[in-house]
Design a binder for these strands. Structure first.
Lengths: 352, 352
DNA sequence: CAGCGCTACTGTATCGTTACAGATTTGTAT
DNA sequence: ATACAAATCTGTAACGATACAGTAGCGCTG
């Protein structure tokens, strides 16, 4: 107890602030380096020493200083969620953030939200993160078939995951909802209800899941023998008013659709409004199947058939995938596709 | 050009990575300290020197290393948004995050989302932030009259802002929606429609805006001479199913309410479901006024009178307030109350 | 022309951590 | 004994920025 108390932090106890390695070094009589290595379970530190260090660290509630680690190693312990400021009205951001943070809670990672305005370059936040080393991993959404963000991140070697897939021959982590399947099953459902003239409210053409959803829709039309009614000039990125007005016009036309597949929950609302503005009744003049991120429609318009896309789960998957990527797991193992499921007709218990 | 090129970063150009003060020092032939001070416009640096430094810094795209600044000064340039993982179904988080980031975009601040699960201590994330110095400012919601988080943050001197007010004699920044006024105007509206037996779906009693909303409701009852129907055991934090079932029971009772004030948009959905389950019709057997965070209800149930609470604006106000607090502005000047407004009856253009 | 004060600039130490290159001790083979 | 390896532990430097305590040069006063 005295033969060992020689050098070490010759300086007195660091002070009253939060504990650092120096504090532990002082308390254990060890060198700062030793303490550092002991806490990372390095092989050249004695078992008993590690034990002592860990005990003291725990007792005094030591938590490594993020700035110190970051400065020295470049590791930020930050995951960046890159978002458009102009998010959909039905706000998928909430459950997404919740899902992500649920996973991050058990890790040293913090979630930083990095926005970009749609009027600007979607690459801007990516460049910022790359240039400033602001994060260890990135989560991006609104993925395009040839996504420049994916190209840039891959080239620069920064781990990331996309919400949605790409078609650029690059193997990378992703999580996606099976929109092909969704549209296919939606068509099946409508045809089973005797509908034959179907319309699709689709995603904007530049996003990857546009072609997925269209493909599923068209495959369904073929397999179940129904016809498509064109609604091509309108997509889920249009305003609710635009969608409603366009759909009202369509429903007032000579040969209106009798089955509707809506690629978004908020779009569905506008479609319903348009349909009713044309003096038609949902469930009578037409049936509708919609993808939804919440329980809303099911409560207010039970006549709509809904397929639930669980964004919270998506957030969890995305978070797990980026971390996996950071940890060096092969990208192939970090890809997942969630299957659509029809929501149970009536009300199951809802959280909170 | 040579008489000055004496000492300075004797070491060669920092290297190919991102530029640091050293890079600029090398390029300008100045000392690192001088460059640092020049960039902060310190008074002891010559005007021309500052100009040169600024020019070079801009040219090479210098951005201060956050870890360096943080380690040395303790300034994190982080604002922490503290959230419950169990957010309401109608997700106010999305627009809130958008509003906050809109303001932070013009500042050096990053937004970090710090969650806590409702099952745990709401103080935990606050303690974490205080103990680790994780943020320069904090945004908290679900504010209580005697909020331990406010007490702790005040005591420790960490800038913060609350979404909602407190009643603890502490002057602090806040942004709030005028729920008193909302409930009062809601009662007025219902009475003007000939309704006399009113029910309130209120916030949970431990939150501050519970008493605000109740006070407005009761003042309205007095001023406009209507009666209250008790629905006390249920509040907006209950599940949709619980609310619906309870409300169905109430509507089937001997003397059901004919006017409904809903303190939340998602609650309104459950109330409508309950009312209809009791074979009543909204607009005929009863009218309803609801506070809403989106355009949903207005589109799907135009018979509901809605008052819009703009969460995005709230996010902006909150962000401005924390930053103001950090900058040392007096708390009194960082308090704001947003007034409820009835939404225009039909559809105005909706964003995206 | 010594001394003072001012302007403009600079070196050193430091924040907390880790990479790296030792240093010390002990045990073992020779 | 001597050398050598293995097992443990340690000091120094560095990441990038800033606080602080200078220093150098200049003009002016008396």
């Amino acid at each position: 107890m005295d033969s060992k108390t020689k050098n070490r932090p010759l300086t007195p106890p660091p002070d009253g602030g939060r504990p650092t390695l120096k504090t532990i070094a002082f308390m254990t009589g060890l060198g700062i380096t030793t303490v550092s290595r002991a806490l990372k379970d390095a092989p050249d530190i004695g078992a008993e020493t590690k034990e002592r260090v860990r005990l003291v660290a725990k007792q005094i509630g030591y938590q490594p200083n993020r700035a110190g680690v970051r400065l020295r190693t470049g590791k930020t312990n930050v995951i960046s969620l890159v978002l458009t400021l102009d998010e959909e009205i039905m706000g998928i951001t909430s459950p997404m953030v919740v899902g992500i943070t649920e996973v991050l809670a058990g890790t040293p990672y913090h979630l930083v939200v990095t926005p970009y305005s749609a009027t600007k370059d979607a690459l801007a936040p990516i460049r910022y993160i790359l240039d400033t080393g602001a994060a260890d991993g990135v989560i991006i959404s609104r993925t395009e078939p040839h996504d420049p963000r994916v190209a840039l991140l891959t080239e620069r070697g920064l781990p990331f995951v996309t919400h949605g897939r790409t078609e650029m021959g690059v193997v990378h982590p992703y999580h996606d909802f099976d929109n092909e399947r969704f549209a296919y099953e939606a068509v099946r459902e409508l045809v089973e209800r005797g509908r034959k003239r179907l319309v699709l409210l689709e995603p904007p053409p530049h996003l990857t899941f546009y072609s997925h959803m269209r493909a599923g829709f068209e495959r369904g039309l073929r397999d179940f023998q129904a016809d498509a009614v064109s609604f091509h000039h309108i997509n889920i990125d249009h305003t609710l008013v635009e969608i409603r007005d366009a759909f009202e016009t369509l429903m007032r036309s000579d040969d209106p659709p009798d089955g509707i597949v809506s690629g978004s929950g908020s779009g569905a609302i506008a479609l319903i409004a348009g349909l009713e503005a044309a003096n038609k009744t949902l469930g009578k003049d037409a049936d509708m199947v919609s993808k939804v991120p919440s329980d809303f429609l099911r409560w207010l318009r039970p006549e709509v058939v809904t397929m639930y896309e669980d964004i919270r789960v998506a957030g969890r998957e995305l978070a797990k995938a980026v971390i996996g990527h950071i940890d060096g797991q092969p990208s192939e193992t970090l890809q997942s596709l969630s299957q659509p499921e029809f929501q149970s007709a009536v009300q199951v218990s809802i959280k909170r």
